[in-house]
Amino acid sequence: MTIRLPYGTYEPRSEPLAPAPHGAPLTSRRVYSAAHVVADPYADVSPDSPAAVDWDATLAFRRHLWSHGLGVAEAMDTAQRGMGLDWAGASELIRRSAAEAKAAGGAIACGVGTDQLPPGETTLPAVTAAYEEQLALVESTGARAVLMASRALAAAARGPEDYLAAYGHLLRQAAEPVILHWLGPMFDPALAGYWGSTDLDAATETLLEVIAAHPDKVDGVKVSLLDARREIELRRRLPKGVRCYTGDDFNYPELIAGDDHGFSHALLGIFDPLGPLAAEAVRTLDTGDAKTFRALLDPTVELSRHLFEPPTRFYKTGVVLLAWLAGHQSHFTMVGGLQSARSLPHLSKAYELADGLGLFPDPLLAEARMKTFLTLHGVDQ
């Protein structure tokens, strides 16, 4: 049986990889999957409307990740914050997911940002107050906070000293250690020059100064620059006890495996579609078997690099397509209408690569859904 794609034919595999759920925590690395939200396909909304979320399907996907022992990074960019999901929706997502995490015994970290600010509101006091409001909410749920990179702070800050002041103020009042977040402009162009400089060496020094001033309040730093060398250099300079969480969806196997000087933990968008396989790989690393870890994860890099190809900020579209094909949701609809943000050839290649990895629990269901999708877009089967 073959499937006709826009650029040729493909013969789907018949058997899934399908690692069995294994809820025991991972021990050698802390691993968070940045989980997507499931839109409500029946809501009568427009791209300018507040997001309509299918809460049952959204929370069921988080239970799926916890069942494999992964943590959930909630209300991060995979959840389309700033691209369809506003603060009202994100705050509800945080409350519901944190409660679900307690019930499931799963790890959760939640994004703290400034996206409740109206457009153009970029004074430093306003930015700090917005961060404080969101930090208070996340801490009230018992979740770990991730201080996300802020578009408003990037616009308001005049230089490194403003980042030092803003983050210092927030860290002094944080009840528990937080994860700092450095998201490169390939993920969000509005974050260019974060930490007060477009020179990444200078920006790194400012970040390290923030951490050095408050090492007891920093659990770790999530680095999403898609530059393995820079991440390795940064993690070697972190104070003892401060973790490096890779957000590098291009080089994650080598960064998580590490070297003689250390390793990265993980907070990754690609671990949404790779969840079960990623958990199985890290469990082999828990036993000290780095070779099998790499054998499991290295073949997934082609899919990840494809999903995260420029414009990288639209990687979520491929992630949600794969969730639909895998049976985690009943439709391919996204908040903000972002199901249209990637081309038919791009999404077809995502299907082909994911199927080749055995990521679909029911390959026949994935094939049937993909054929329907292709037919709808003019590729007769």
Results as ranks from 00 to 15, higher is better:
V223T: 13
G89A: 06
F314W: 14
A279D: 02
H328T: 10
E15F: 13
R62G: 05
A166T: 15
T58S: 14
L180M: 00
H22R: 10
P361Q: 00
R294E: 14
W66C: 05
A57V: 02
E209T: 15
Y167A: 02
G356F: 10
G288S: 02
E352Y: 09
W324R: 04
A99N: 02
H36W: 15
P239M: 07
L226A: 12
A34K: 02
F360R: 01
G89M: 04
E132M: 01
A323C: 13
P363W: 05
T122L: 02
L296P: 09
S67H: 11
E233S: 12
H306P: 03
K316M: 11
Y32W: 12
L117E: 07
D201I: 13
D219K: 07
G193A: 00
S264L: 00
A107P: 11
L225G: 07
F308S: 03
L238K: 03
P119H: 12
E132S: 05
A75D: 11
A136C: 05
S49L: 06
P6D: 09
L238A: 01
A130H: 08
R13E: 08
I94P: 01
T204F: 03
H306G: 00
Q173M: 15
L191G: 02
T58F: 10
G337W: 12
T246H: 08
K240I: 02
H68M: 04
A279W: 04
R342Y: 07
Q134D: 13
L26M: 12
A99D: 10
F250Y: 15
A192E: 12
H261N: 05
A281W: 08
T2N: 14
A341G: 04
R243S: 14
S304N: 07
S197E: 04
P363Q: 04
R172Y: 08
G378Y: 04
A39S: 06
E367N: 12
H265T: 05
K222I: 03
G23L: 11
A350R: 07
G23V: 10
P177E: 07
P299L: 08
D259L: 06
L226P: 02
R229W: 09
R237H: 07
A228L: 07
T372K: 12
A43L: 11
P6S: 11
P215A: 13
Y194G: 05
G84D: 05
A157M: 12
A155I: 04
P47L: 07
Y167C: 01
H22P: 00
L5G: 06
G23M: 11
H306C: 00
A366P: 11
Y131K: 06
T206W: 00
A136V: 07
